[in-house]
Design a protein around this nucleic acid. Structure first.
Length: 614
DNA sequence: AAAAAAC
């Protein structure tokens, strides 16, 4: 791929941030170490406010696991060790002076940086500059102006350094607005295309606020209890792997700061997670189930949450999720919406989510980037007509024609967990290195599968919906919808696993005429919106399926997007002539009208081996 | 109907 050009393209813009960061670094070296509250003492009863009287002698009993302790001994403020002499433990954070803010930070740690940032791929692809052409709409009262460079925002110098370390040079459209919006203390409902930097879109602003404001004054937990962890920021996401990914990202940007991120999710023993919690937690990344469990057990309280983020919010209102979410947000000890900043992020915007928005957000700003619910134009979509019993052969054809490999990771979606296992086994037996991921595998297997996919040990991953959302895996070049989902939004999310951050990718879907008629109209809509060719057999199927379904008016996209029916960003930006820079692979062996980028999509699905009329 | 998410 053209990773070279994308790197070069970035280097110009990147230097600005890097230089600035270096300057900041120098400025802050040698600052006085002031009162320092270790993470595990923050937010606990009786701890003196930052900057309070210093007590030199630490209490040894502090090391007792916190959730076992009855009453805390009087907490202690330790004087931070002189920097440089010894390797600073990871949990040690910036030296904080309430009068001056952060005065100095722990020295940089090369080894830690190596592990933190090595998997941080270059955040900008060949088409990154296209983001400038994406229509952005921000509506609401007193919408703050967006920024166009990181330098324009009043970003904390440490955050700027970490952004530079992570190789982020230019803010994406979401980030351009989310930063000033949160800075203004506003709530946000953000709808942005897959792969457009939503995670950093909420991490940057909340970490920025936290860095600038400093650690909260220590307070007691519920009922005066002090053995409960009270994070200041809470990030909820629908799958364990996504949660873990957000956590990794948060560690990158919280590096060397006082903010201690912790992650909790199900499927693994609680011990390690509760131990991590007990060591202090300022930013908690969680899946809903495990969080509720932890709260029921009294490990976590949300009473000091100032920032609440719901990622993939559209997924959060599925049956089974919404009650949990409402319980967390409305029925535990979360501060009411006036006392917190709430951000909701989503790539699509179904009507139901507006109810969540109404209940969870105050006077919020609605931000839409691109056309809501649309697929990225960086993904070349091809639909092939394949009957159920032909799918496997067609798939083998594809894999033979375009072998999966380290720079051509291939992600295959199926509808059922059983099929995921079966297909992966078939492929494995046919000498295609494949792994499977789905919700019935235990967490170790899930993580192993994802790891061996990321590292291209098995460059083919067969997945259920568990991998449909949010996962950011570099080099996923091809998404195959072996089974089309029943929900068009799922389709959009799935193909969003490729073509990320301005890179290109392709998506092939097996359209089974006997099964997939229900989404045919919406599928055509998605293809048109993304400036993709619509094969003739789809049109035909749509005509023959003129009634019922979700199709027609308001079925998808902007129609149900805005409040008051207002469409989000309606301009079709996918008309630019220079968009079609992507030169696709030669057409593959499975003929079904046209190959990649071949502007003529060939004859209607011929009577060939598959397809044909029905 | 299936998938995800707690033990």
């Amino acid at each position: 791929m053209s990773s070279n050009s994308s790197q070069q393209q970035q280097s110009g813009a990147g230097n600005g941030v890097a230089d600035l960061a270096q300057g900041m670094n120098r400025m802050n070296l040698g600052g006085d170490a002031r009162s320092y509250v270790p993470p595990h003492l923050r937010n606990r009863s009786g701890a003196p406010a930052p900057g309070g009287a210093l007590r030199a002698t630490p209490e040894p009993r502090l090391l007792v696991p916190l959730h076992r302790a009855g009453t805390r001994p009087e907490p202690v403020v330790r004087i931070a060790p002189a920097s440089g002499s010894r390797r600073v433990p990871r949990s040690v954070s910036a030296y904080w002076d309430p009068r001056q803010g952060a005065t100095s930070w722990p020295p940089r740690d090369e080894r830690l940086e190596g592990s933190l940032y090595k998997s941080a791929h270059v955040a900008t692809g060949i088409n990154f500059s296209k983001y400038d052409d994406i229509p952005i709409e921000a509506s609401g009262n007193d919408v703050p102006n967006g920024i166009s460079k990181f330098e324009e925002a009043d970003l904390d110098p440490l955050l700027i350094e970490n952004i530079a370390l992570a190789n982020y040079a230019t803010p994406t459209p979401v980030q351009k607005y989310s930063i000033p919006i949160v800075e203004a203390g506003r709530d946000l409902m953000a709808c942005a295309q897959t792969g457009s930097g939503k995670t950093a879109g909420f991490l940057f602003p909340i970490l920025n606020e936290m860095f600038k404001k400093g650690p909260p004054a220590p307070t007691s937990g519920p009922g005066g209890r002090n053995n409960v962890v009270c994070p200041m920021a809470l990030i909820l996401s629908p799958t364990r792997e996504l949660t873990s990914q957000i956590y990794d990202e948060s560690k990158r940007f919280a590096y060397r700061s006082w903010v201690k991120p912790v992650v909790i999710y199900g499927g693994v023993p609680m011990r390690e997670q509760s131990y991590n919690l007990s060591r202090g937690c300022d930013l908690l990344v969680a899946t809903p189930g495990r969080l509720v469990d932890m709260m029921d057990r009294g490990y976590v309280s949300l009473r000091h949450v100032k920032y609440l983020i719901l990622d993939e919010a559209d997924r959060m209102l599925d049956m089974g999720f919404e009650p949990q979410i409402r319980r967390i947000v409305e029925q535990m000890d979360m501060p009411p919406l006036e006392e917190r900043v709430t951000l909701m992020f989503s790539a699509t915007f179904p009507r139901e989510i507006q109810y969540l928005a109404r209940d969870f957000l105050g006077d919020y700003i609605f931000l839409s980037v691109g056309r809501v619910g649309a697929a990225s134009e960086n993904v070349t979509q091809q639909i092939v007509e394949v009957y159920e019993n032909e799918k496997y052969d067609v798939l083998l054809d594809i894999l033979n024609t375009e072998p999966a490999g380290a720079d051509n990771l291939t992600l295959i979606f199926v509808e059922t967990k059983r099929n995921a296992d079966m297909l992966a086994n078939y492929l494995y037996d046919a000498n295609f290195p494949a792994a499977a991921i789905h919700g019935d595998r235990d967490q170790r297997e899930r993580e192993r599968a994802l790891y061996s996919f990321r590292t291209a040990r098995t460059p083919i991953l067969v997945a259920t919906a568990v991998a449909a959302r949010g996962l950011d895996i570099p080099n996923v070049m091809h998404v195959v919808n072996y089974d089309l989902p029943n929900d068009i939004d799922d389709y959009v999310h799935r193909i969003g696993r490729t073509g990320r951050a301005g890179n290109t990718g392709k998506a092939t879907a097996f359209f089974a005429p006997d099964k997939n008629r229900n989404i045919v109209r919406e599928l055509i809509g998605i293809l048109r919106d993304a400036n993709q060719e619509v094969p003739e057999f789809l049109e035909r199927a749509a005509n023959e399926y003129a009634f019922g379904g979700r199709g027609g008016f308001g079925g998808r996209g902007g129609g149900r997007g805005g409040r008051g029916g207002r469409n989000a960003a309606t301009r079709d930006f996918r008309q630019e002539a220079d968009y079609k820079t992507y030169t696709p692979a030669p057409r593959s062996a499975y003929g079904n009208g046209g190959g990649w980028g071949d502007d003529s999509w060939g004859p209607p699905p011929s009577s060939g081996s598959y397809g044909g009329g029905w």
